[in-house]
């Protein structure tokens, strides 16, 4: 199968660049919205490149979301608090690496 050309990531870059260009001629809320739209495309580009995934909690505790919620709420995981908080932080790092890597503390960048 031949790959689509230009590839998907190039399409996203093209739209992002276009938004940043038209942003210059916009004012007020629209100007801001164009910038935020470009930010959304950058998130999409990072997610496409490396979906990563928030898997630490799932791997450590083997619970689906519903059961995890019940376990946290009921206090069933209180005795494994250190393990749980470490896994939650690991998953949060993975999510921020896609959303806005600059937001991470330097020790968590480019992991």
């Amino acid at each position: 199968m031949t790959e689509a050309y230009p590839p998907l990531d190039e399409l996203l870059v093209t739209v992002r660049d276009f938004l940043m260009e038209v942003r210059q001629s916009l004012t007020g809320a629209q100007r801001y919205h164009a910038q935020v739209a470009a930010y959304l495309l950058e998130i999409a580009m990072r997610e496409l490149k490396d979906p990563g995934g928030e898997v630490a909690v799932k791997n450590s505790f083997g619970l689906d979301m519903q059961r995890l919620r019940t376990a946290i709420r009921s206090g069933a995981l209180d005795s494994r608090d250190e393990e749980l908080s470490a896994a939650l932080l690991t998953d949060a790092i993975a999510a921020v690496a896609i959303t806005r890597p600059d937001h991470l503390h330097p020790e968590h960048r480019d992991q």
Binding site: S85, L89, I93, V96, I98, T99, H103, L104
Partner: peptide
Amino acid sequence: GRNTALVEYDLMM
């Protein structure tokens, strides 16, 4: 919606 992750990170930190 996506920025929720940034706040969650700060919360865990």
